[in-house]
Every structure is written in structure tokens, then in C-alpha cells.
């Protein structure tokens, strides 16, 4: 079953086209990695899909309907960069923010919401840190809290923008385990990913993006050397001398 259908999506920043005629479908229960070079439009793709950024052209259907009707079934984990880490709030509070959509505007949170938030923190191994100020958490711990915030939304389709950027190995494992369990329970996850080396390990599907879709589909079919070169352009050098897909693009 197709949960996401994108057709001819285009977007721009000022006068520069950042997304050009993007078309792809995503099936239910898949874990898709979105890869591409800097400036390829990966973050913009997510923002445009979610109508956080204006669309120039194209159609987006989620669960067969236009976005407005199904917003509550979608979860979004933005990049960590925009947050003010000095802000006086603790881990539990941050996770509760994920429930604001369910609580409703103008209404206060209830104890049931608090319980849900604690459960989500627990799933990410952060239950002991519920009362800790976010400024006192490590990068990996902060990311786990943001994942918990996404989990608590109980969405069916998740968009995550570079959730593994700047986290330690243990956190990376924990996050990927969580994503795998989401997939196992029938949820669909799309992740903007920066590390080419781990794509075939982590994702069953991949979307190669450089302003437009270079290719998309099952990782084993689509994540080929040719496609990577087409996506990243320029000369790619192998830094490991064998079959392992270790590439670096030269300037």
C-alpha cells in the first residue's frame, strides 16, 4: 500500500530552483534513506512535503488524501540546529511538546499525557533523565529525547532530518533499533541521511536526490555505484581498496 505519493514536486529559494519535478512513491512499512550532496534539496523536500515551505508545482498525497486531512498521522523530527539549548526546559517537558497537537491549543496537559511522555522516554532509554535540563545532556542524549518526542506523537508516517548527525555510536545504534521497531509495527519512516557508508546497512529503500530524483526503490537494486556517481557528480574516489562502498567525492 502506498502511503506517500509525490508527483512533479518543485520548490525554490528566492530565484533558485532547489527541487525540480520530484516524483516518487513510498510503500507502507518501509524504512527509506534520502541521500544526496549538500544543497541537493533533502531538507527542502521534507519541508515542502509538509507544506512548511511553499510549493511551486506538484502534488502530494499522504494515505491517499491531501496533507491537510492527515496531519495528525504524520511525525516530523527537524534538524537539531534550530533549537536554543539554553532554554529552561527538561527532557520530559520536551517530549510533552510532541503531544501538544493531541492536547489541543489552549488546553493544559493532563497526567495521562505525562505518562505517555515518560513511556516514550523510557523506550529511548532516557527515563532517568526526565527531570534533567536539556543543556546538561550530551548530543546523543538530546537526539534521543527528540526521538522520544516523535514517538509520542504515535504517527504512521515519520520524516526525520539527519537524526544521526553528530551522535555517538551507542546512540546511533539505539536510534536505528527504534526505527527498525517502528518499521516492524507497520509504520513508515523516511530519513535524510548523510553517511553513504551505512545506507545499505540501515535502510531497505533509498531515494537518491540531487534537485530531482536520480533513482528510488529497494536499496539492493538502486544503491549502485553508477547511481551514486550520478547523484554526487564529479569524480568519486574509492578510499577503501575493495568492494565496500566507501566513496569520497573530490572537489
Amino acid at each position: 500500500m502506498t502511503v506517500l505519493h509525490v508527483k512533479g514536486l518543485s520548490a525554490a529559494y528566492r530565484k533558485n530552483t532547489v527541487l525540480d519535478n520530484v516524483t516518487f512513491q513510498v510503500a507502507k512499512g518501509t524504512l527509506t534513506g534520502i541521500v544526496g550532496p549538500n544543497g541537493a534539496g533533502k531538507s527542502t523536500l521534507i519541508k515542502t512535503l509538509l507544506e512548511l515551505h511553499p510549493r511551486i508545482a506538484g502534488d502530494v498525497h499522504v494515505f491517499g488524501s491531501p496533507l491537510k486531512k492527515v496531519k495528525s498521522r504524520i511525525g516530523y523530527v527537524p534538524q537539531r540546529g534550530s533549537v536554543d539549548w539554553d532554554f529552561p526546559t527538561n527532557a520530559l517537558d520536551v517530549v510533552m511538546m510532541g503531544l501538544y497537537g493531541q492536547i489541543g491549543w489552549l488546553k493544559p496537559p493532563r497526567s495521562t499525557h505525562k505518562k505517555k511522555a515518560m513511556e516514550a522516554l523510557d523506550k529511548m532509554g532516557m527515563a532517568d533523565y526526565a527531570g534533567r535540563q536539556i543543556s546538561q545532556l550530551s548530543g546523543g542524549q538530546q537526539q534521543r529525547v527528540f526521538l522520544a518526542r516523535a514517538l509520542v506523537q504515535d504517527a504512521e508516517l515519520y520524516f526525520m532530518d539527519e537524526p544521526l548527525a553528530g551522535v555517538d555510536a551507542a546512540t546511533e545504534r539505539a536510534i536505528m533499533l527504534t526505527l527498525q521497531s517502528l518499521k516492524a509495527s507497520g509504520k513508515t519512516v523516511m530519513v535524510v541521511h548523510h553517511d553513504l557508508q551505512t545506507v545499505d546497512q540501515y535502510f531497505d529503500h533509498v531515494l537518491l536526490l540531487n534537485r530531482t530524483v536520480i533513482d528510488h526503490g529497494k536499496t539492493e537494486e538502486v544503491f549502485t555505484q553508477d547511481n551514486i556517481i550520478r547523484t554526487y557528480g564529479g569524480a568519486l574516489r574509492r578510499i577503501k581498496g575493495d568492494e565496500s562502498l566507501a566513496y569520497t567525492a573530490s572537489k
Binding site: 523530527v77 534550530s82 517537558d93 511538546m97 501538544y100 496537559p109
Partner: peptide, 18 residues
């Protein structure tokens, strides 16, 4: 609008997503 202000000030991107 207390909790809305809190969300808006702390993480506007996520707030927009909601």
C-alpha cells in the same frame, strides 16, 4: 497560550510541523 509560547520559543521548526 503558555504552552504554545513555550513551544514557539524553544523549537519553532517542530512547532511548525505540528
Amino acid at each position: 497560550l503558555f504552552k504554545e509560547w513555550k513551544l514557539f520559543l524553544f523549537d519553532p521548526s517542530f512547532a511548525q510541523g505540528l
